[in-house]
Simulated scan of single mutants.
Amino acid sequence: MASYTPNLNLYKKDPIADGNDFFNIKTMMNDNWDKIDEKVKAALDDIGDLQSEQVRIATGSYEGTGTYGASNPCSLTF
């Protein structure tokens, strides 16, 4: 009996139960290739979106004065 893969919902034939069935190119190949192509395109689009936003990372350091509390305010400027 045929089944489907859990992630991409690709069509899978069972070689034992379906071994005498005719090979249907549309169902057994083309539909699966279309699903794979669609998912890869979506993933590539997501990667492109991340790259186009040009994420920036700022680094720095801070050395405290050893004082704290309301009477000893501290500030960080970026």
Rank of each mutant, 00 (worst) to 15 (best):
G66H: 02
D49L: 15
T67N: 10
Y68E: 07
T77C: 00
G64M: 01
T5N: 00
D34S: 12
N30G: 01
G64D: 07
M1T: 07
V40A: 11
N9W: 01
G66V: 03
G60S: 12
K13T: 10
V55S: 05
T77F: 01
P15D: 13
S3I: 03
G48V: 00
E63P: 01
P73K: 05
D46C: 04
V40Q: 09
S71H: 02
G48Y: 04
L10P: 05
Y11A: 03
D49S: 09
D34G: 02
T65M: 07
W33V: 11
T67P: 00
Y4E: 07
L50M: 14
T65L: 03
D14C: 01
P6V: 00
F23M: 14
R56K: 14
L10K: 12
D45A: 15
M1Y: 08
P6I: 03
M28K: 01
D14P: 00
P73H: 08
M29Y: 13
F22T: 15
D14V: 00
G19M: 10
Q51T: 14
Q51S: 11
F22R: 15
Q54A: 08
I36Q: 07
L44T: 10
G66L: 01
D31G: 00
S52F: 07
F78D: 06
C74L: 13
N32V: 01
F23T: 12
D45K: 15
A43K: 14
